[in-house]
């Protein structure tokens, strides 16, 4: 496959950036999108140019590092991560636009790399349970109802990739935060801190400068892990109950 790429290039956090056009050839449809970018970068390095900086780690769809907006869609046309997106979803001769996540809470570090530590601070404000560690607890010490376990699993799938923020016209982190809140609040282990967790995590989210939710649903459409939009309603319910009760 031969492709035209228009990629956001930005030398550093405060440097001005722009979309720059590149041609790549000899791309196999079986390559992942990241492998296609690797091919481009090898060429750039051979030519003595700066390679395109992008985040990646596991390359198997579980770490959430490989965020980029492809043709206006977070992680591109398929509902998966960029590392799991294959070039067979594009056609020979296509022009593909590649941009970093856009949100003021996710400043660009370089090219396609953004700083997502705002998510870490939200987690630090309540995305954990307080329990003694060191010795493993007895397996059946805390029974977990099947339904709660299923809900917790569904929400624990969130990999913190930030596609929800990137897709949201308000740069809102509500889907991410609700995934974490619902995951822990539904479990008996999370119960004692239920109320402070939701209040602190919403406060941390607001402090980071993420936008509010206007229920456009773009986040849930973009989420590679299928976190449902109704999880935001669940977090709203718990937040209002915790704040008023």
């Amino acid at each position: 496959m031969n492709l035209t790429l228009r990629i956001w290039r930005q030398a550093g956090p405060d440097a001005p950036g722009s979309m720059t056009t590149y041609q790549v050839s000899g791309i196999s449809p079986d390559m992942s999108f990241l492998e296609m970018l690797d091919t481009l970068n090898e060429e750039l390095i051979t030519r003595g140019d700066q390679p395109v900086a992008f985040d990646h780690d596991c390359r198997e769809g579980i770490c959430g590092a490989c965020g980029m907006v492809i043709n206006g869609q977070a992680h591109g046309p398929e509902r998966t991560t960029t590392c799991q997106l294959h070039m067979r979803h594009f056609k020979d001769g296509d022009t593909i636009d590649v941009e970093p996540w856009r949100a003021s809470a996710f400043p660009v570090v370089k090219d396609l790399v953004v700083d997502r530590t705002a998510f870490d601070r939200i987690i630090g404000s309540g995305g954990y349970i307080t329990a003694p560690t060191g010795s493993a607890p007895d397996a059946h010490a805390t029974p977990v109802p099947k339904e709660a376990a299923d809900t917790a699993f569904e929400h624990a799938e969130c990999i913190g990739c930030g596609a929800c923020v990137a897709a949201c016209p308000n740069g809102s982190a509500m889907l991410f935060t609700s995934a974490k809140v619902v995951h822990l609040n539904v479990l008996p282990q999370g119960a004692p801190e239920r109320s402070s967790r939701v209040r602190n995590m919403v406060a941390a989210m607001d402090d980071e400068g993420f936008g509010g939710c206007t229920n456009t649903g773009e986040c849930a459409t973009a989420c590679p892990k299928g976190i449902p939009l109704t999880s935001i309603a669940a977090m709203n319910r718990q937040f209002l109950r915790a704040s008023l009760g």
């Binding site: 941009e99 856009r102 016209p169 740069g171 400068g209 509010g212």
Partner: peptide, 10 residues
């Protein structure tokens, strides 16, 4: 909301 998304996608 507008401040949280200052840059539009190309």
């Amino acid at each position: 909301d507008i401040a949280a998304r200052p840059t539009k996608y190309a």
